[in-house]
Amino acid sequence: MDKIVVENLKYKYPLTDKLVLNDISFKIEKGQFIGIIGQNGAGKSTLCQAITGLVPLFFKGAYGGRVLVDGIEVAKSNISDISLKVGMVFQNPFTQVTGSKLTVYEEVAFGLENIGLNREEMKNRIDEALNLLGIYRFKDRNPFDLSGGQMQRLAIAGIIAMQPDVIILDEPTSQLDPQGSEEVFKAVWDLKKRGITIIMVEHKMEKIAEYSDKVLLMHDGKVIDFDTPEKIFSRDDLMQYGVIEPAYTRICKAFDIKDSGLYPVTLDRACEMVVKYNEHN
């Protein structure tokens, strides 16, 4: 069964005229890594919020169509119930720290206390989440004393502990330094390997190409294309949507290095194909 189904989704923020989401439909299978790309203002964040139910349950406004998670319609559910199925990580690690907890360990407990978990289960889940994100050694630190990358991994741990099977990340590394973003990407990759469905909005196309099973290209509130990274980045009209191919793809496009009509999108594949190309010429 499809994990997430979006059907003819339309949405407009209160007091505005423009449709931020304009007739969007797509389906996501369980366990996939989906990258969402498009220029700022394309509607990427709003789409993420619609899958978690923040739109329209937190942000009101005009809403049409439906979003189904495991067959349950989110607009008719409530955010707390959806949060057990779909977790979301935002751009700024700092505003995701609750501010009411004094240690990293207690911070992860926040959501678990809210859903009324018993203490044994809570502790098991916190230990597991902190270990998975590689921040167990900071468990007694104040959350605000962590670095950006560590704080963002703490935010993910807080979500993971709720054991959702879908995690949405909205530009999770844009505020981080290269090492911090690498830490986050690695952590997310581990989650994907455990069978968690990942949806990630990201401007770093090389990363999207490396990790995604499928890429959703958005522009002006619409879905332009939803396909494999190779197919998406082999399009010749990306510039029109304010998107650029990964560096490796751009190089191969310049020399028309392709395989059955598709250009390579990752470093390894590009290298392989360039070598082959050089041998032939």
Binding site: F58, F90, G158
Partner: peptide
């Protein structure tokens, strides 16, 4: 938003 995602408004009895 981040709090809502972590079931802040949950109707369950808090532990």
């Amino acid at each position: 938003m981040a709090l809502e995602i972590r079931a802040f408004s949950s109707k369950n009895k808090k532990t």
